[in-house]
């Protein structure tokens, strides 16, 4: 087995086709900064057009950040006046990125990696989805904290204080002891969001059944898993009847093309011949929303290199590669998204 060293491949001279340089834009001011990177207001030099530039932090271990890939993919699909339009992605040559910091970019300004947890995972996305649903119902931001401690406090006020009972493992998370609430806090999500009278017009004008479903969905989310792996088990049925109470946690259901059949490692074949489970049918990951704990094999160690079933070290003789040094300095292009936005 041969190992090609990085030096053998002269990628510096390789073009990033199709990609313009960020130098086509003049940065005017920084609009915001979050775990995902920075967003700038900028002017395209040639046309004078005002755009938003979103800088994506590159992840040394995982390459092009999955969150950025998903964001690009989704933004390209969405065409709506209220959804920011992705114009193009450009690169910055020779820019030095922040070093040694894992790239995290979240599509929404919700602080979804809490208490020093560093693992981005589907569970984190679940949290974000829950937050957005809650905000739709509430009609405004649900955790409008100015900074992380304040935001955490708002989360605890609404969702209750995290402890080992409702969030097993939370006490092991790096900053738990610094930020844990000093007084007991009860979960009052249902009181805060469950009342339809308080919901915004968009929600109240829905048929009653739908609204109740969404409310149930929201209210039944306990303080969601923020880390990964074992944290999934703490999703419990909430006070309201589960949205899909009759379904098993990972029920395969027809009707959605995007999902793929996925079995536990060593399970049935990749493409079962059976008509209902095969093909592009959607596997209802969402069973875990409200119908009880995730099955342990269902969503284990998301995005974790060591947690993949059967993904261990690649057998014998496969250890010739090294995982890049954490502080590998980046001298290549940096991806920057240009977003078309009316800035005020």
């Amino acid at each position: 087995m041969a190992i090609a060293g990085a030096g053998q491949l002269n990628l510096h001279e390789s073009p990033c086709w199709g990609s313009r340089s960020v130098d086509c834009f003049e940065k005017l001011e920084q609009i915001s900064e979050g775990t995902y990177g920075q967003v700038y207001m900028a002017r395209e030099i040639k046309t004078g057009e005002i755009v938003a530039l979103k800088k994506i932090r590159m992840d040394n271990e995982r390459g092009f950040p999955i969150t950025a890939i998903r964001e690009i993919k989704i933004l390209k699909k969405l065409h709506h006046e209220n959804v920011i339009k992705l114009k193009e992605s450009v690169t910055s040559q020779g820019a030095k990125d922040e070093q040694g910091r894992p790239g995290k970019c979240c599509p929404i300004p919700i602080n979804n990696l809490l208490l020093g947890a560093t693992k981005y995972s589907p569970a984190v996305d679940m949290w974000s989805v829950g937050c957005i649903f809650a905000e739709l119902l509430h009609g405004k931001l649900i955790f409008p904290g100015k900074d992380e401690p304040e935001q955490l406090n708002k989360i605890f006020e609404l969702c209750g204080a995290p402890d080992e009972v409702n969030w097993p493992g939370v006490s092991k998370i790096p900053w738990y002891n610094n930020f844990k609430p000093t007084r007991p806090m009860k979960r009052r999500l249902r009181e805060a969001l469950g009342n339809q009278e308080k919901a915004p017009a968009t929600a109240t004008t829905r048929r009653k059944g739908q609204t109740t479903e969404i409310t149930a969905f929201t209210a039944s989310c306990r303080l969601p898993p923020i880390q990964s792996g074992q944290a999934h088990a703490q999703m419990r049925p909430g006070p309201n009847p589960p949205l899909h109470g009759s379904q098993p946690p990972v029920a395969a259901g027809p009707g959605h093309h995007h999902g793929k059949p996925r079995g536990p490692a060593g399970g049935p074949g990749r493409y079962p011949a059976n008509g209902t489970n095969g093909g592009f049918n959607h596997q209802n990951h969402g069973g875990g929303y409200s119908s009880g704990p995730y099955p342990p094999q269902g969503r284990g160690a998301p995005y974790g290199s060591s947690g993949m079933p059967g993904a261990g070290p690649r057998g014998s003789g496969g250890s010739g590669y090294g995982v890049g040094a954490p502080n590998y300095s980046q001298d290549g292009p940096t991806e920057v998204l240009v977003l078309d936005v009316a800035l005020t």
């Binding site: 087995m1 190992i3 060293g5 990628l11 990609s19 390459g63 193009e88 690169t91 890049g324 290549g332």
Partner: peptide, 22 residues
């Protein structure tokens, strides 16, 4: 036949990425 280091793949991804992002 060949196995690559993380940073090598990463560079290739970025070349690729710059392209498919566009």
């Amino acid at each position: 036949k060949f196995v690559f280091e993380a940073r090598t793949i990463y560079r290739m991804e970025r070349i690729n990425g710059g392209w498919w992002g566009e």
